[in-house]
Nucleic acid binder design. Structure first.
Length: 522
RNA sequence: GGCCCCAUGGUCAAGUGGACUAAGACACCGGUCUUUCAAGCCGGUAACCCGGGUUCGAAUCCCGGUGGGGUCACCA
């Protein structure tokens, strides 16, 4: 209970100045009381499908001044993976999502791990049991599996036989006395229909006769998903259940639980799924589909956020590059599409390149730092002077990089001298006659330049080119190869000026020697 | 197989009965710029799943088919 909602506080409202009073009233009206949640199961890492569901919940909450809640559905102790919870939380945070209530942040409706709420489920299950809306089932999993198999063979829909639904109190007592453990099933009416009013899909009707008495509590006292989910959504006052479409067919069952328990129904919105390029549901075999993997491949969270938002949602116009603020401002479930989307890494990569190109250099520096460290280009946190240098490097190479990994690769020769010469370049450029001499003359031309800037070094080189009567490329290409080991890269004079005189002269000399030592007589 | 959802270029996607000879983006192809490669700029190829209806008029509404997807656990 919020302290501010206490009675004494309310009284003071009447004594508030009119303006303040109205502002507060307006706030309470504007704040719609929207509460949404993302409820992952810590059985693996967060893949982009889950991330997109989390994102849409987040966007809806922020767009409606509501609250975004993180809840962990960790009731499957068998499949639970150590560290998965931390991983999911790290991924969500990296993506730029933050929640108002959750297992790590706390909140008024906690605990936010289902494993810590078992008593609540037990109590709610008891309520249904004593009201006769649910009943104990003594069938063993093996028996049930056999029945399903039989039904499958006969071509029937696998449904629970209803064997335990009519057990007399005496029969139950006997089973209990024999030490049998029981699961709990919900009594599902076999007539009528259950209707899902979906904010995205409209009215979806399910015949109750297609449903059977499903299990809400396992025999070990742990609730099943369809039960725990409903109890929590109700107790946590969730107003909008926004989740992937794969849950649409669970919804009638959950509505039945809501009704049996006497809870108000939240609104439902089933967002389209994200499919792999082979049109199938995302899974391990599709390779890198995890948020952490994209992170490791050098995608910026800004780009993934933007890309994921555009998968199934559109601002309605031609804009592709949208900041998270813009997306939050414009997001609406009305604009969410109904059909599944196939994710396309190429578009993500393009978006990433756009962000790499336009993000403030400070931000790029921060994002690139771990990659530079991993590549051994930098140690720890660089000193101010070195940071300045790194930022200049980033500025000159970033338009060519689509990921931070590419960026790191393209920046490598600015930090280390031990690079190899590109073999194709060696063939095409270093093998030309007279190259060592050319490089030495280039070195001489640069040696006297002061200050060693882009314009000054270029002027010196142009002068030499004129003097020798050769084409610019004849000097520029060997120089680039000598200085960077590569045949492609930023404008040569940007590289020269950044590298500085000492390193340029040294690398030109070394290349000339290397050619004479390795390519002579060939 | 039962139930449910969906259907505009290869992919994302605008479109909500006339402004559609159907936007835009990615990818692809060409051109331009240039010392290279990118980026940028300019241009091009490429789509309303099929069949019936309703209507003066259908990408848009209805029905049927086909195709794709999801789901049918003491998993979530």
């Amino acid at each position: 209970m919020r302290p501010s909602a206490s009675g004494s506080n309310c009284k003071t409202w009447k004594t508030l100045p009119l303006k303040v009073y109205f502002r507060r009233r307006c706030n309470t009206i504007i704040s719609s009381g929207v509460r949404v949640r993302f409820a992952p199961s810590p059985t693996g890492s967060l893949h982009i499908g889950g991330a997109r569901t989390a994102l849409f919940n987040y966007l809806f909450a922020r767009a409606n001044r509501g609250r975004f809640i993180l809840r962990l559905e960790d009731t499957d102790f068998e499949r639970r993976i150590e560290g998965a919870e931390e991983g999911i939380i790290a991924s969500l945070r990296w993506l730029g999502l933050d929640w108002d209530e959750g297992p790590d942040t706390g909140g008024e409706y906690g605990p936010y791990r289902q494993s810590e709420r078992l008593e609540t489920y037990r109590r709610e299950s008891e309520r249904l049991l004593s009201a006769g809306l649910a009943y104990p089932c003594y069938c063993t999993p093996e028996e049930l599996a056999a029945e399903r198999e039989e039904a499958r063979k006969a071509g029937r829909a696998p449904r629970y036989s209803g064997r335990c639904c009519g057990l007399t109190p005496e029969a139950r007592a006997a089973k209990e006395a024999a030490g049998l453990r029981h699961a709990v099933r919900l009594r599902v009416p076999q007539t009528g229909q259950t209707v899902v009013e979906d904010l995205i899909r409209g009215t979806v009707v399910f015949e109750n006769a297609t449903l059977d008495d499903f299990i809400i509590m396992k025999s070990n006292g742990v609730p099943t998903y369809n039960f725990a989910c409903v109890v929590d959504d109700a107790m946590m006052a969730i107003t909008h259940v926004i989740r992937a479409e794969e849950h649409l067919s669970n919804t009638p069952k959950q509505i039945l639980v809501f009704q049996a328990l006497g809870y108000h129904l939240p609104s439902f919105a089933h967002v389209p799924m994200i499919l792999a390029p082979d049109r199938a549901k995302l899974s391990k075999r599709h390779g890198a589909t995890g948020v952490e993997e994209f992170r490791g491949q050098g995608y910026l969270p800004e780009a993934l956020f933007n890309y994921l938002a555009l998968l199934g949602w559109s601002p309605g116009d031609e804009r592709e590059l949208l900041s998270s603020d813009e997306i939050v401002r414009e997001f609406s479930l009305d604009a969410v599409s109904k059909h599944a989307a196939i994710y396309d890494v190429q578009k993500l990569t393009w978006l990433n390149s756009q962000y790499i190109n336009t993000v403030p250099l400070e931000r790029l520096f921060e994002a690139a730092l771990p990659f530079f460290r991993d590549a051994g280009l930098l140690e720890e946190v660089p000193a101010a002077a070195e940071k300045e240098y790194v930022i200049r490097v980033l500025e000159t190479v970033r338009s060519r990089a689509r990921t931070l990994v590419e960026l790191t690769d393209m920046a490598a020769y600015f930090f280390r001298d031990d690079f190899a010469y590109d073999p194709k370049g060696v063939q095409k450029i270093f093998r030309s006659p007279g190259v060592p001499d050319l490089l030495r003359r280039g070195s001489e031309a640069l040696s006297g330049v002061e200050p060693f800037g882009v314009a000054e070094t270029e002027a010196a080189y142009r002068k030499l080119i004129d003097f020798l009567g050769i084409s610019g490329g004849a000097l520029i290409h060997p120089t680039r190869l000598a200085l960077t080991g590569r045949t492609v890269g930023p404008g040569l004079f940007d590289v020269i000026a950044l590298l500085g005189k000492e390193r340029c002269l040294e690398r030109l000399r070394r290349a000339a020697d290397w050619i004479e030592g390795n390519l002579v007589n060939q």
